[in-house]
Design a protein around this nucleic acid. Structure first.
Ligand SMILES: [Mn+2]
Ligand SMILES: [Mn+2]
Ligand SMILES: [Zn+2]
Ligand SMILES: [Zn+2]
Lengths: 142, 142
DNA sequence: TCAACAGTTTAGAATTGTTTTAATGTAAAT
DNA sequence: ATTTACATTAAAACAATTCTAAACTGTTGA
């Protein structure tokens, strides 16, 4: 499939030139039908498999940050160990499975929209997100 | 005030002996009327001011983790830079001010309780928390 | 055509928050 | 008192992320 022009557009929109490495990142991120969650390490490994060649961590970080700033990716903080990124850039909620450290999207019709009665003077709400931590029954609570 | 026996109890309950350093940590954490949010660095500085003496980071980390495991503190992840801790251990929601990097508690009557219609098979819900990111109007969205 | 430029890749170094280590010190139990 | 277990500490190790600077690549325009 010739998604390549889509990828070059996204890169240019993000202020980046389309290069071999960056196009491969795009392929991994934007060709799957389903959105997904990943860490920088996940992504780097996937790319090195597909590319059969090393890619520099600096390139991955740079590209991911540019996409995040442009709004083509979201960053999700679960614990402070490492960052998770999300190719689903719509505002949505998450389950986090503490047994497997896995993030699971929550469809908007799985949660009633959150009704906030308070506001901070002089501040605008930028996002409202719910995080539901789950674990198998016989598990020590976090 | 003689909160000291309260502090020693909390320490013992957490599996720790009461020492000068740990009692000072307790005083900073548990004597204020209002709950508050802090980072390890915040806390260490406060303690060193009150104590007029250095305290080892390792001691602070150990004590804070023991309290967290016992449920006397909560850990909150906002971004992956650093951990925030909360002396308010009830389940509650937060505003996060992106301009100042400040956490603000959300009273339970400021948000309708979140209604979750989906569940993950074999998993129990451990917590449900809402994070509302805010910023001053003329601000670039995260 | 090809030199000059702007932006890119990369390995490795630096930085930051956190955890571990191991030597020394202190509280508690006997 | 003596012994034991646990604490404190500075410093080292660690892991995620960011920065650096040298080599590289694609583009531009003389
Ligand atoms: Mn961050
Ligand atoms: Mn870190
Ligand atoms: Zn998601
Ligand atoms: Zn709070």
């Amino acid at each position: 499939m010739s998604n390549i022009s889509i990828y070059t557009d996204k890169l240019r929109e993000s202020g980046l030139r389309p290069t071999r490495q960056r196009l491969k990142i795009c392929e991994v991120l934007f060709s799957p039908e389903k959105t997904f969650h990943f860490t920088i390490n996940d992504l780097t490994k996937i790319i090195e498999n597909k590319l059969s060649e090393k890619i520099s961590l600096a390139t991955v970080y740079n590209t991911i940050h540019a996409f995040k700033n442009k709004g083509y990716l979201k960053e999700i903080s679960i614990n402070s160990d490492k960052s998770y990124f999300d190719t689903n850039v719509t505002e949505h909620h998450h389950f986090f499975d503490e047994d497997t450290n896995e993030l699971i999207d929550c469809n908007n019709d799985d949660i009633d929209s959150v009704n906030i009665k308070k506001n901070i003077t002089g501040k605008k709400i930028k996002s409202v997100e719910v995080l539901i931590k789950v674990a198998s029954d016989n598990q020590n609570q976090n």
